[in-house]
Design a binder for these strands. Structure first.
Lengths: 192, 192
DNA sequence: CTCGAATGTCTAGCGGTGCTAGAATCGAGC
DNA sequence: GCTCGATTCTAGCACCGCTAGACATTCGAG
């Protein structure tokens, strides 16, 4: 028994190592640099070992996304709870969102740009993802205004932030004015 | 002379064929399916011929993007000029933007998601791209409101639309409520 | 009209990718 | 110490973007 338990523990540990290494490599050099060969070399195992933990690269991206979602939700909630009043919460939330995206570009990509094989906005969406959206909803829902569904408002505000993140990162928007763009969103979209 | 002219014409014609074929293939099966081998086969030349026209795949994406930018600008201007009054223009503009993105996903990706080696928001940005942004600015600039730079307002509104497009396409947002999300943006972001 | 040079296009190949079949090794339990 | 199942590895597949160098074709000069 104990032997099997130890093996299971070691296996779980190795799985964490794979995810952590993939994330680290992606943050350092971008997801394109996360090849199964490089990843295998970094964890000091051969390539096929990766496939005994994950179906393929896509699932590894998905694992990084789930990890990131939990962190992002926590960051958003921390920022929101530190702010006073609905408007201040929205401002804090937006800043924290952009800040997270900027500090963790690879995680952000895994979450919202790449295909990690995860279901979104669906009943079988993994809990961390639902919870991330919930964290947004908690602060944004209270400023959606009469006649506007809080969920829909949250989706729209989120999309606006996501647009800022992706266009800026893709060098379609100059980064200098981000703060002013966020201010515009925060000033006008909420119903108060 | 005439011989050289004919050759140049044929060469230009072949270049158009490459771009059109790449675009077609990308719209049919996504950009991942646009490999140099497949593309070469479809135009009935060998791979190296592609490299006598373009530095690489990236430049082919860039060429498709430029073509698409011109079309998009035209579509946006047509929609705007058919609408009556600033608010109606903004609504028409937003709908046309999303419609273009939905009808031409590969072109949209070439423009705003992929690396086509093009400079944006810069002095040496290619004319079609500048013109596309100008088409947005013409309608959005008039509703930016006092104290808000029209360019900045346009960027922000654009980013919101882009966020809707990409999150919906990436299956992060359910597609059904797009219309209501757009309404929210159009109702709240403009200063009137 | 011929022939060398320039131009154009091709075949073949490089080092890389994600992924996998089957051989080799390891270690637990008798 | 041995056996046998689980684990890990080596080697390889088909594909990728890209390119060197061979080959064919066309052109211009004599």
């Amino acid at each position: 028994m104990s032997v099997q338990e130890r093996k299971q523990r070691e296996r779980a540990e190795r799985e964490r190592l794979i995810v952590a290494t993939a994330r680290e490599l992606a943050e350092q050099q971008g997801w394109d640099a996360v090849t199964t060969r490089r990843l295998a070399e970094r964890i000091e195992y051969s390539q096929p070992v990766l496939y005994s933990h994950f179906r393929g690269k896509r699932e590894i991206i998905g694992a990084v996304a789930l990890e990131g979602a939990t962190e992002m939700a926590a960051a958003l909630r921390a920022a929101a709870s530190a702010a006073d009043g609905p408007r201040a919460r929205v401002t804090a939330l937006a800043r924290t969102y952009l800040d997270f995206a900027e500090r963790n570009p690879a995680v952000y990509d895994a979450l919202f740009r790449l295909d990690g094989g995860l279901a979104f906005a669906h009943e079988d969406t993994p809990e961390p993802l639902k919870d991330g959206f919930a964290a947004l909803l908690e602060s944004l829902g209270e400023v959606s205004g009469d006649g506007v569904d809080p969920g829909l408002f949250t989706e729209t505000f989120w999309a606006a932030l996501h647009g800022l993140v992706t266009l800026t990162r893709a060098r379609r928007l100059p980064p200098e004015d981000t703060e002013r763009r966020v201010k515009l969103l925060v000033d006008r979209l909420p119903a108060v």
